[in-house]
């Protein structure tokens, strides 16, 4: 348990005091309010860093190590994730780790919805086919990309065969949850 840094009480992107979670047949959709995010962009001629020992992934890929993870967002740019640290100043911690790089706090720039399947890859891939124009067979575990979803810009990260994370801009959280939930419900029908 991390000590609260303030006497203000945060709310989740969906406006709740606790993260939302809902089950649709084989799929469970969960708001991940604890995820800290910081963008990392290399300066010109900067060597590839290994923040917290994390090897930064190649184009279109994601890596994870303990509670830390990273995915590629552009040439020389990554998003670094830290589980359970959403209320800390993770950007400052990252900046201290790679002082030369450009680091921006992105924790509340995005809402992360984790989608888990109890029946393997098929429900995950069926959901993806309704929402994002990505070839799900070529988008296996360890793949990450940014794309469009119902006119919104999202990051899609395939954590494993049966787990997917969709991140959308935080202010679109309600609309993104709606899109995911309606689709998951229809797959269940």
């Amino acid at each position: 348990m991390i000590e609260p840094v303030t006497d203000l009480a945060p709310i989740t992107a969906l406006g709740g005091t606790v993260p939302r979670s809902e089950i649709f047949g084989a799929l469970t959709l969960s708001e991940n309010a604890g995820l800290a995010l910081a963008s990392l962009a290399l300066r010109k001629d900067q060597e590839m860093p290994k923040p917290f020992g994390l090897p930064l992934p190649e184009v279109g890929k994601a890596v994870s190590m303990g509670g830390l993870a990273a995915f590629w967002t552009g040439r020389g740019q990554w998003m670094i994730e830290a589980a359970g640290r959403g209320e800390t100043d993770f950007a400052a911690a990252l900046k201290a780790e790679v002082p030369k790089a450009c680091v921006s706090e992105q924790t509340d720039g995005w809402v992360a919805f984790d989608i888990a399947s109890t029946q393997g890859a098929a429900p995950i891939e069926a959901l993806m086919a309704r929402l994002v124009n990505l070839d799900s067979t070529g988008f296996g575990p360890g793949c990450a990309t940014r794309t469009g979803l119902e006119h919104m810009s999202v990051f899609v990260i395939r954590r494993s065969e049966d787990r997917l994370t969709v991140m959308g801009m935080r202010t679109f959280a309600d609309a993104l949850w709606h899109a995911l939930a309606v689709t998951a419900r229809r797959l269940d029908d």
């Binding site: 945060p10 509340d108 935080r170």
Partner: peptide
């Protein structure tokens, strides 16, 4: 009591004014 924030002394209204930014999850509170 400890929340990181950014304060800008700027005015759109012509009055003494500030804009205060905090991580979005604390905006409501």
């Amino acid at each position: 009591n400890g929340l990181r924030a950014r304060l800008f002394r700027i005015s759109f209204s012509g009055e003494l004014a500030y804009e205060l930014a905090v991580p979005a999850r604390y905006g409501h509170a």
